[in-house]
């Protein structure tokens, strides 16, 4: 399976994603420079975390006009697998590949820590190796992860099973206290209608090795690899 890690000016988790795919998953991986216009040779594109263009105007607002984003949109429209992590998720929202937007965390501070996530749909390319209701321990690191969307779209996301991950407590209860950033409905990750585009605030690449304190992020990588094998 071949992964492409898209590099925008200001991305800073691209090397981490590359490392995990290369050294932990032992799959093919390339960096994809933001000026590239052809991404057809990849099976899965990763939009990594960071501060694209400094996130000065609004997170992801400028990155989404990078030449590569047209190619990403085209790739996604043909069913290509795209995962946006943290800033990558914000870019997908700005680009309209996923619905909604991000506000600042309600505490108004950057938060970097492990959180618990409940798998809300285990029948997607990204979670097929997880079980429904499984609790994952994966870190977040962001200032703007407070997800909002209009009520109508929220209802649709829920009905269509497109809410993939919600913040929860260690026991799997989705509670106010377990919500680190104020996100609507404790949403941590969502998919598009075709489930081939996935955006999430937590960093699965930071929870892919025992030595870093958790391997719960692996379930996401292993799911997408399994999906790709079966599809292929």
């Amino acid at each position: 399976m071949k992964f492409g890690v898209v590099v925008f000016p200001g991305s800073n988790c691209e090397a981490d994603c590359y490392y995990v795919v290369d050294k932990v998953l032992r799959e093919d991986v390339d960096y994809v420079w933001h000026r590239e216009t052809d991404v057809s040779s990849y099976d899965c594109l990763i939009l990594p975390g960071g501060f694209s263009y400094g996130d000065y105007l609004r997170c992801g607002a400028i990155a989404r006009f990078s030449p590569v984003m047209e190619a990403v949109a085209d790739f996604a429209s043909r069913g290509g697998l795209v995962i946006g992590i943290c800033n990558g998720f914000q870019i997908l929202l700005e680009a309209g590949l996923l619905p909604g937007a991000m506000l600042r965390n309600t505490c108004l501070r950057f938060i970097c820590r492990f959180v618990h996530l409940r798998v809300e749909n285990a029948d997607t390319p990204w979670t097929n190796r997880a079980s429904l209701g499984q609790v994952l321990r994966i870190p977040i690191a962001h200032n703007e992860g407070n997800y909002v969307v209009d009520p109508e779209t929220y209802r649709r996301l829920e009905e269509e099973g497109r809410i993939i991950l919600r913040y929860c407590d260690p026991e799997g209860e989705v509670t106010q206290e377990a919500n680190p950033n104020g996100a609507m409905g404790n949403i941590a990750g969502i998919c598009n209608e075709g489930f081939n585009v996935f955006g999430l605030m937590p960093h699965p690449e930071r929870a892919s090795e025992e030595i870093l304190g958790s391997t719960d992020g692996l379930v996401i990588w292993e799911s997408v690899m399994a999906y790709n094998r079966e599809k292929g």
Partner: peptide, 16 residues
């Protein structure tokens, strides 16, 4: 304090 700092990026921090 330290939760406001990204102390994990680069995947090298093995004691937080």
């Amino acid at each position: 304090v330290y939760e406001q700092y990204d102390h994990m990026v680069q995947l090298n921090t093995v004691v937080y």
